[in-house]
């Protein structure tokens, strides 16, 4: 009885192993359609395209040293890739007074790709009341982008970074 059981278990186990091996060997022929995503062994997106989960993507932010509160609106809404467009930036002091005569520079890029913006956007108009026109905004691929503004007013400079997630 003991040897019989052992024999049965052995046969069953061997058959199981052979079936699995045959299935794996047949994989190239039956093609990847039948592969469960887990079996093809990769994540749906490449690691360098996945932005950190805790990313703050708000369009209103306080500058790094707390001097100004900055917000933007985009003429292209929702934001999309490969289209040059204009932003309007609004700048206030921490206590809500519009900052009228700021010097502003624009920079940015994709932190996970190590490249900058495809264009060199510039502030081209001061609309008054703390509003500024930023022309030449463009993003050429989907993923996580940073747009940084350096703001100088009354001799005091502070910086702010907006995070964007673009489809594409």
């Amino acid at each position: 009885m003991k040897t019989q059981t052992a024999k049965t278990i052995l046969i069953v186990a061997l058959t199981a192993i052979i079936t699995v091996i045959v299935f794996i060997l047949l994989m190239p022929i039956i093609g990847p359609r039948f592969m469960h995503p887990l079996m093809s062994g990769y994540m749906p997106m490449h690691a360098n395209s996945v932005p950190p989960a805790s990313l703050d993507i708000s369009t209103v932010r306080t500058t790094d040293n707390g001097l100004y509160r900055v917000s933007f609106t985009s003429e292209l809404n929702p934001l999309a890739i490969n289209q040059i467009h204009t932003w309007t930036l609004h700048i206030e002091t921490a206590d809500g007074q519009p900052v009228e005569n700021a010097e502003i520079t624009v920079d940015g890029g994709m932190p996970q790709h190590g490249h900058g913006l495809p264009t060199r956007p510039q502030v081209t108009q001061n609309l008054g009341n703390g509003d500024y026109v930023v022309e030449g905004m463009k993003f050429q691929m989907g993923g996580w982008w940073e747009v940084k503004f350096s703001i100088t007013s009354g001799g005091k400079t502070d910086t702010v970074t907006f995070n964007l997630i673009l489809e594409g």
Binding site: Y42, M43, P44, M45, H46, N48, S49, H113, Q140, M141, G142, G143, G168
Partner: peptide
Amino acid sequence: GPANCIQC
């Protein structure tokens, strides 16, 4: 996905 062609 993994080949990242869509970046460009």
